[in-house]
């Protein structure tokens, strides 16, 4: 066992963690924005809005993210109008932005479905009660529908976030040296693929486990009404398994 090698590999891969997190964070943030728009469009009741969101979800869920990334990065740059556009090109020129765009578009499709399901799962009785209370549509949404729907969406949303963490590894195919790209570079220089990949694997696993724990904790905090009251002298049950 060559501990020095493992340690130096883990250290080098860890140095790329900020870049991985950057892709991850912005991909998720923009994805959330698009997903909110899509969910609103779908719920708005316009037929054309519904058709658009259906088509969107169909396309982005039905094809691999790798294809989508290649299309955004190599495909779009083939259009002259993209390359000469003062707005599009500064974004699509940069591999980092391309990855974030592809990831955001992809995750938005999954997230909008999660949100749609969550909105539909809000108990009708609660909404009726709010109506009977004389709440305006906006107040009803703000105080009743949204909190309940968000809570319901959380487990599926956390799974999607973990899928996104794994998806950041694809950025290495468009020259970004995030954790997977760094691991591959070390692998080329040292020709020891198995050791290097194992090191990277440990880091990804720890990262995903901490994200899962974080979500489990949030979920636990947001659902006190579902927990049995702790008996005297009894420890509160550990957080539920998410990953």
């Amino acid at each position: 066992m060559d501990f020095d090698f493992y340690l130096s590999t883990i250290w080098s891969v860890l140095k790329a963690l900020p870049l991985t997190l950057e892709i991850w964070f912005f991909g998720i943030a923009f994805g959330l924005l698009i997903a909110t728009g899509l969910t609103w469009l779908r719920a708005s009741g316009y037929k054309s809005g519904e058709y658009f969101t259906r088509a969107y979800v169909f396309v982005f869920r039905g094809s691999p993210l790798l294809v989508q990334l290649y299309l955004v990065y190599f495909g779009l740059s083939q259009f002259d109008f993209v390359r000469h556009s003062p707005i599009l090109w500064p974004i699509l020129r940069d591999p980092m932005y391309c990855t974030i765009v592809a990831m955001a578009l992809n995750t938005a499709a999954y997230e909008s479905e999660i949100f749609r399901g969550a909105l539909r799962a809000v108990p009708v009785g609660q909404i009726e009660a709010a109506k009977a209370f004389g709440m305006s549509a906006f107040t009803r949404f703000r105080l009743v529908t949204l909190p309940i729907a968000l809570r319901l969406a959380l487990p599926a949303y956390s799974t999607e976030i973990i899928l996104m963490t794994k998806a950041t590894a694809l950025a290495s195919v468009v020259t970004i040296m995030e954790m997977m790209g760094t691991a591959q570079k070390i692998q080329h220089d040292t020709f020891r693929p198995i050791e290097v990949l194992t090191c990277a694997g440990v880091i990804y696993l720890l990262l995903n486990l901490s994200i899962a724990r974080l979500f489990a904790w949030v979920e636990h905090r947001l659902s006190p009404h579902l927990r049995a009251p702790p008996e005297q002298g009894q420890q509160v049950k550990p957080v539920p398994e998410v990953l």
Binding site: F74, S77, Q78, R83, P95, T175
Partner: peptide, 16 residues
């Protein structure tokens, strides 16, 4: 650093 030489050719033509 690209995985293939074709890819840097494409990016050279694209101006990246």
């Amino acid at each position: 650093e690209y995985k293939t030489t074709d890819e840097h050719d494409l990016d050279l033509m694209a101006g990246r």
